[in-house]
Amino acid sequence: MKCPRCVQRIHRAAASCPHCGFTLADAEARFGATEIHILSLTDNAGILPRGDRGRVECAMRKITLRFPQIFLSIYTCTLGEIADVRQFGFWLLNRSVLDDVAADKSNDAGIFLILDPESKAAGMVFGYLLDPFLDEVDTFECLSRAHAHWLEGNYADGILRCLTHLDLVLQKKSQQAKRKPKFFEQKVSGPARLDGSRNASNAAISGGVIAEVKQEVDS
């Protein structure tokens, strides 16, 4: 995991970035502290004509149907002087309310694609539900599929390519999670604790830690 501001690695449960002290409060100071109401496809930058918009919505709907737990959001805007797609994505994930998404789905089940045609940058962030399954490399692969199209200004085509690859990645990860759930659980579980509350599956995976814990308990 990396800090949205300094892009340094951070601990999975860090309350603030140990390198720069960044928190959501810093992002709110920059982009606003109030919630914003958006649609799952919000084209503030006006880069998607009506026909392209339909194609993109269709692709989004397919993914949402295939993966009932999650939803997709595409947000295009011109960030101007405050352009920092990574921080903006982090803020949007935590401060947006999607009016066309079922109320039982919170933003931690969302995947947000932010596209800024002015600064020519795009980012992808996702909530905690997908935290064990996706990582930076997966999202980067999705974005890189769209790179050539976006270079030429074909935003809709780029988004479609990006979503197609995302669909494949999610299918693969879901199948892997079905086969090896403990592997993914171990990725997000917290550090070992002496009170024995740590679940057995984590202990089974990290054998070295078990030995250490036992020693400490014995002593």
Binding site: N107, F126, L129, Q175, A177, V188
Partner: peptide, 29 residues
Amino acid sequence: ARYHFPLFDVEPRLGGANGAGVGAVISFA
């Protein structure tokens, strides 16, 4: 086909209730 992901408890980071600090950015300038 419908795909599901197992749900795990993830401790919040950087004060974000829904997600924090993961994902990639790409430039096409």
